[in-house]
Design a protein around this nucleic acid. Structure first.
Lengths: 344, 344
DNA sequence: AAAAAGAATGATAGCGCTATCATGACAGCG
DNA sequence: CGCTGTCATGATAGCGCTATCATTCTTTTT
């Protein structure tokens, strides 16, 4: 009869993974002391700590974080939910989050909604089930069920990208103001026939917020604010193909305000290819301040949004909150900056 | 005295979260039956299933996945470890993985090594602690400790990006061959003074594998294969700044083979800005087939690597393995394609 | 010197779920 | 009629860890 606990009657151990109990035995202490030596080193004596760490090394112990999380109901997982991974903007925010959170020993559980709020709800449910320490989500809009679920959740929630009164913490920028800013610039430059071009505005509702700002400025100046909405995803390709549509519908167009830099750069490169002079024949403006815009000639006029910074700041605020400190400001405006290029 | 189990003496419940036991009670069944109704619906009667689902809805039950994972030692988490999030190449692989895995109910635990193999080892340790169902990592190179840890792990391991004999499963492409391919193209076109430009090749060792292929072809043709290594990260900016260095060191250069499209596009745009004719004055080639290269004029000659496809294929193979099916091929060559532009 | 406080360790009992085995009900069969 | 087999359900006992309280021993205080 084997005395191996792995093979006795009611035993349910699935793997031959080393457990903390084995480490403790090998170090000559109780399991709880071994646990403290690893997670709360200040609570044990130097000798004990050394013995336990040696045993860990000797046995190749890898802590079972699932068990630890269940017992302590803390997980050091942070759920991050974004609407898209194609749009590099979200990736840069993730990057900022990731570098700050990982340095503090948190891991990222990544979810992608593909701009579907029902999908977001499902992801939130799943992530709550993992006892995440906090949740980061892009945007302030959620469906009803999701809202209810989050309202009753007792961990920090961080809504990023857009500024506004969120459920808990918020780091973002004012998209309506950004739209106003660029529109003012174009009007100041003397442009009158200005078209706003966006892609899938129902989904990318922040782009339509920028359009609202744009429209307000133009109307205040007594100018029409035509909108061209593309039904493909915002990309270089979509931008380059958008020119035809714009000129077909609005032949007198002198300036185009694009919802983002991908579209704008695509249009800029396409316009050049067909021999148009920028900005004389057509002025082009974007949004985001992607590196690409700074390397094309003429340089793209755009609005710089601090995306990585947004991620880093969001992460820092979360960490502050998670370590029990009081958060004074729930809303953080990271602002934006008009980046004047030669394309307008 | 309260009979509320949340407030009795030795109770350790931290939250007032609904548990499966409460759902079961409300549905008039035992906890284990409720569990089956949710995770193994075929095992219970229609009536029971309906009752349980109604109770779930009624109480707003969110399953505690941590507890479930501990009990079953299955987690439906997939660890994904990449060396960088700045390089869009990895993001596209993640995207391919993510869309395929999420559709099958797996979640991604994301880690970033910043090209540090020790950091990779730490991440692997952490992720194994989460009982991940599988692990995806970029590249075949790991440090000793990491190798040992993974060799003893009894779940699928998928190494992506480069082709070769890995620890378990592998989906990638042959970078040496890709380097050869582009070098052959340049030589065939009649170029002789060809410089290879890469950034931080010790870290981005796949770029140096491409250089190896490049060098082999040039040497076979009796041509020198000078290398210019930049110490900044590969980016548009680095590419545009690299021109000076290249011409300073190799004034006669007629063609530059860049390690990636960001560098190449940056150089192309910078060359244009200073009035050079491409490809007459200087030919430029890249690697990756980023959209940007297809929208600049002249179009960039590059090598198309199927990055999202790589992610999707890797995910599919993992899923196949996780659902118990036998995997016949452990290595998958996703190949690459020479994309002829006008820049060479 | 006695009392109080602190430091280090341990025993116990869960966290919320599921694997395993056991049970009872009922159908089919010779 | 008992026998076997299948189906639906339940009782029990963990998964590997940590919160809580208890204990021992040392240090400080008055």
């Amino acid at each position: 009869m084997s005395k191996d606990p792995l093979h006795t009657a009611k035993n349910r151990r699935h793997s031959d993974q080393i457990t903390l109990t084995q480490v403790a035995k090998s170090a000559g202490v109780s399991p709880i002391t071994a646990s403290r030596a690893l997670n709360n080193p200040a609570k044990v004596s130097d000798t004990t700590r050394r013995n336990v760490l040696e045993a860990v090394e000797r046995l190749g112990y890898v802590p079972n974080l699932v068990a630890g999380s269940l017992a302590s109901s803390r997980s050091r997982l942070i759920a991050v939910i974004v609407p898209s991974l194609i749009n590099s903007v979200f990736v840069e925010v993730i990057k900022g989050l990731q570098e700050t959170l990982e340095a503090e020993g948190y891991q990222i559980l990544l979810g992608n909604t593909d701009y579907d709020l029902d999908r977001e709800y499902q992801l939130v449910r799943t992530f709550l089930g993992w006892s995440c320490s906090a949740l980061v989500t892009a945007g302030l809009r959620h469906n009803k069920a999701c809202h209810k679920l989050l309202a009753n959740w007792d961990h920090p929630i961080m809504e990023v990208m857009e500024l506004g009164k969120g459920m808990d913490l918020n780091v973002g920028l004012d998209h309506v103001a950004a739209g106003r800013c660029m529109a003012s610039h174009l009007v100041d430059k003397g442009y009158r026939d200005i078209v706003y071009v966006g892609a899938q505005l129902a989904q990318d509702y922040r782009a339509s917020m920028r359009y609202e700002g744009h429209k307000a400025v133009l109307q205040a100046n007594g100018i029409d604010a035509p909108l061209v909405e593309l039904d493909t995803l915002g990309s270089l390709k979509a931008g380059s193909e958008s020119l035809d549509q714009v000129f077909a519908r609005h032949p007198k167009t002198k300036a185009i305000h694009f919802a983002n830099d991908d579209l704008a750069a695509g249009a800029l490169l396409a316009a050049q290819r067909r021999g148009l002079n920028i900005p004389k024949d057509i002025a082009i403006a974007g949004f985001n301040g992607l590196p690409l815009g700074q390397h094309v000639t003429p340089q793209l006029t755009t609005i710089l949004s601090p995306r990585e910074e947004m991620g880093r700041l969001a992460a820092k605020e979360l960490i502050r909150r998670l370590s029990g400190k009081n958060v004074v400001r729930r809303q953080h405006d990271v602002g934006f900056k008009l980046q004047l290029g030669e394309s307008t």
